[in-house]
Design a protein around this nucleic acid. Structure first.
Lengths: 223, 223, 223, 223
DNA sequence: TATGAATGAGTATTCATTCAT
DNA sequence: GATGAATGAATACTCATTCAT
């Protein structure tokens, strides 16, 4: 269901701000995989979208960063829209993996949710965070919009399921799973709006602080 | 600091989806105040931005909805950018009012925060919610961006202050005010992404559910 | 043939840079003649055209300078084009007067030409100079273009006639009247491109220098 | 300092009114150099500006003449303004060359000035004449305006220098170099206002007549 | 007289996309 | 694989002009 190279791309998430090396530069240096170049295209797009927004980023911008011409991009990607979609998928994959692991584990539900949310937060803070969260549905064609919605909904359902399981196994207090899932996801997604690489706190630290809040709430605990 | 007509506009937030009646239609019907028309322009823009996004909304779209020609918009507003800014302000004003009230009250801090967040959530669910939350900073000129950032920061500081006051008066448990403020705002802002007028739950109900989560946390309480 | 108020306007040519007083300002102060206001409109337009060019001057600019609204201008003038035409006429009238006088005098032709060119130069250096010289024919309707051409041609013919008379009465050496008239007019018209009010030399001094050149030529004279 | 292709363009000045052949028409016919096309764009623009003025010429007009679409123009030129600038430069180059030659020669100054002015007049009568002379400074951005002013000033200084040298070597009578330079340039520049290709006299003949006037003046010479 | 309000027509500029080479 | 060249469609913004009041 997800595009081919997505997993490889997602694994190598790069938090640094260094310009991605252009695989075109050393032209003769090996028949550098089409896959590698495709990855570079997507990653470069993600950074540009993140920095300037989807509509304020032209394909020319992306091509220029890669030191390539615009039509070349079309060799690796069908559309500008598809470029956005690929970025979205690349960012989402680690999140899906996190929830897969949560399902497989046999700890109590709150612990499993805790772990998944930690990885969720890190994905949001990655260079693909913008594309996952801030990219507007409006900018996609109906077909892709449906696709994206389905993927997002999957995550939503994963969270709700863990909440319900937690209420069942006693590790989570009574709550409305739908509203609570929205609140959790919202708080974490929002990280994409303010997190910058140079932040004093790492994504992991932020995630930890968030999860602590969700666990204990604002009201002082007895002891 | 905020534009004149903003408060009137903000007071009359309209959650319905009904097309705003066009004050131009009945030309002779009263001396339809310039102010009223300006309001209609802004409100119509807000709905369009909300529905299709800023970049996918042309001034022609807005004009057509109002059954007016494009240049007429320029009679009421300087720019497309300014249109967005006005929407932002219109949405933000009730939030500022909420925090003003929170400062004035002499209840314990958690109660005051609780009240402010309720109103915050309702503002986000209003027709101006998109403009306040999802509009990209990238789309504004540097000058306006600074302006918007300052206004947003004001709210952020208000939240942090209440958190600190709550820790001081014992109504709020120990927490990192900055991270917590981000988490709270994020969860609430996210409402703008999924809330639709036809939702089964009202904005107030949603806000209540959120606030309850924030107060008690996920972990089951003793009693 | 020339518009009514032109002569009065032309007589009061104002070389200063001081903003023309707006007759609207003191509203009650007498029923200030329509003629006076019309004059103010034209003079203000001339200055604006002179400063920013015809196309870069909007009627709003002119209206704003006069502290009036745009439609008011239409009460005094039919068109933007007509506004330009009026400026042209206002500038031209003193030149026509100069050549009328030259025809009436009974001095030798070179002396009469000399005198007329002096006044010609001063007209070009006036605030209407731009409109007379730099305004493009292209910006006028066919009807007005013909009108303007006729007026310009009249001046051209006046110069040629004086040249021929000078060759006849021996005060002017052999020359091609057409080419010479073009050269004279061109040199003088060009003043509109570089003359500014704050020039160290007055329009009269410049005119004198030019006429001296035309009279004696570059080649050193015997004595 | 001047744009690359300018010199080639200037050398091939075409006085005819025949429509420039569109290099796009025969698409396959040769690899029609980008340079050639760029030239065609500039020349076509010059003719249009000449015929209708800068503001009354839309890029659509120019594109239509070339049988190309508007965005194509942007492939060769950055701006409408830059288009005007290129025309200006193309027209000016032969003039600069003329004065370079004048500096290199070792004839008396009056003879050298004479020669330079002849070529000056021919440049003004070329299809680029309008852009050099009648284009308003007002239509250029501040940066370009400065650039243009500098180039024009260079020519002015060249004329003044020759006048001073002429007074020194006795070939030119006493005169104010500044005023005289203005008069000479003005008379020649004015040619752009009235010269048309179908003129009975060639540009060279006109220039000769002008130079004769400047040399001898109006006053009859002794013998 | 003067103006508030509105508009029609125009215009420069941008950009995703295509295609022959 | 990559690019130079071209285009169609869209879009924000301007401005002279009109007209009811």
């Amino acid at each position: 269901m997800l595009p081919e190279s997505m997993i490889a791309l997602a694994m190598s998430v790069n938090h640094g701000t260094a310009r991605a090396p252009s695989p075109w530069r050393s032209r003769r240096k090996a028949r550098a995989d089409r896959g590698l170049k495709r990855e570079a295209v997507i990653r470069t797009a993600a950074r540009a979208f993140n920095a300037r927004g989807y509509h304020n980023t032209s394909l020319d911008d992306i091509a220029a960063t890669l030191e390539v011409t615009k039509p070349t991009l079309y060799y690796y990607v069908e559309n500008k829209e598809q470029l956005l979609f690929e970025c979205f998928c690349a960012g989402l994959e680690p999140v899906r993996a996190a929830f897969r692991d949560a399902r497989a584990s046999n700890q109590d539900a709150r612990t499993r949710l805790h772990g998944a949310l930690l990885r969720y937060a890190q994905a949001i803070a990655s260079e693909f965070g913008w594309c996952m969260v801030r990219a507007e549905d409006q900018d996609l064609s109906v077909a892709m919009r449906a696709h994206v919605k389905a993927l997002k909904s999957e995550i939503d359902q994963d969270i709700r399921r863990l909440l319900r399981e937690g209420m069942a196994d006693g590790s989570i207090g009574a709550c409305d799973p739908k509203m609570t899932a929205f609140a959790l996801a919202g708080a974490l997604n929002w990280i994409a709006h303010w997190y910058r690489d140079n932040q004093s706190q790492s994504a992991a630290q932020i995630a930890a602080a968030f999860v602590a809040l969700f666990e204990n709430g604002l009201r002082p605990r007895a002891a």
